[in-house]
């Protein structure tokens, strides 16, 4: 066959976003009963720069691939950090990966928190459960440029005191970077002297200027809805409340169709979206 006559284009595709890069696990930390943090370095040595709120498609070879938000420091593109909760077969393989293990990484993908646009404003960060992991890069970026922001508050709701994440860092953000940190738990234990209750119950104690506030929310959808409602009640515009959405994702690049929420491709248009864009879609059953 004389293919040269027929073909006009380059038939070899150099880069395919569906093919993973291999990373090696250089360090692990068991954060809670079911959650672990992995430190990963690219085998090819190339950096992986990302925006806070972006995710990668993380693959345990031979087991499967899932979207996982990046939980590391955006200032350090040499190390990829993921905080993974063990909730299924793939996330189990990832959360229990040992130092030296190789994982496949595609990405980073998606639209992040766009923290830079909150410069000059008050920032309220509200996390529920594992939702603190995707928000950590945003907190780190803000802390690195703390003077550029007004009042910065972190509200964090965890299931129990033992299931809190980044417990060594929370006091540091408060003490060294002037972040007002409030943590509440759904259920306490004997060690806990802090508040017990829903994270929305903390909203009333936050100091912010409603017309000049950016609110970043990540957690279960119900928690995000109720939190957004509490800030809307306090006068924050729906567009200034950003939520990080979760839907089934198989490609991460808008091609597989799984993550659609009516007109939105959560992987490409999100995962971080203005609440005004999704509010009406979240109360529609089975959309």
């Amino acid at each position: 066959m004389n293919a040269a006559l027929a073909t006009s284009s380059q038939r070899v595709v150099v880069e395919d976003p569906m093919v993973p890069r291999s990373f090696v696990v250089t360090r692990t930390r068991q954060d809670t009963r079911d959650t672990a943090t992995l430190w990963l370095t690219a085998m090819d040595g190339a950096p992986l720069a990302f925006e806070p709120g972006q995710f990668t498609m993380l693959q345990a070879y031979g087991v499967g691939e899932v979207p996982v938000s990046i939980s590391g420091d955006p200032a350090d593109d040499g190390v990829l950090q993921h905080t993974i909760r063990d909730v299924g077969s793939v996330s189990h393989a990832l959360a229990t990966a040992e130092t030296g293990a190789r994982l496949g990484v595609r990405g980073p993908f998606g639209v992040g928190w766009d923290v830079g646009t909150a410069r000059g404003r008050d920032v309220v960060i509200v996390a529920g459960g594992i939702g603190l992991a995707p928000l950590r890069p945003a907190v780190l970026e803000i802390c690195a440029n703390r003077a550029a922001y007004g009042e910065v508050t972190l509200l964090y709701g965890a299931r129990t005191p033992a299931e809190r994440l980044f417990t060594d860092e929370l006091p540091r953000w408060a003490a060294e970077h002037g972040v007002a940190v409030h943590v509440t738990v759904d259920r306490s234990d004997d060690s806990w002297r802090g508040p017990v209750g829903l994270v929305t119950g903390l909203v009333d104690r936050v100091v912010f200027r409603p017309e000049l506030a950016t609110v970043l929310v990540c957690g279960p959808e119900v928690m995000m809805r109720h939190t957004a409602a509490a800030f809307l009640d306090r006068g924050v515009a729906p567009a200034d409340v950003r939520v990080s959405m979760e839907r089934n994702m198989k490609c991460g690049i808008g091609l597989c169709g799984h993550c659609q929420l009516r007109e939105l491709f959560i992987c490409q248009d999100g995962p971080v979206l203005g609440y005004g864009l999704v509010a009406s879609l979240l109360t529609q059953a089975e959309l």
Partner: peptide, 8 residues
């Protein structure tokens, strides 16, 4: 229709 899944 363009929806796809991946299988290992």
């Amino acid at each position: 229709c363009f929806c796809t899944d991946v299988e290992d």
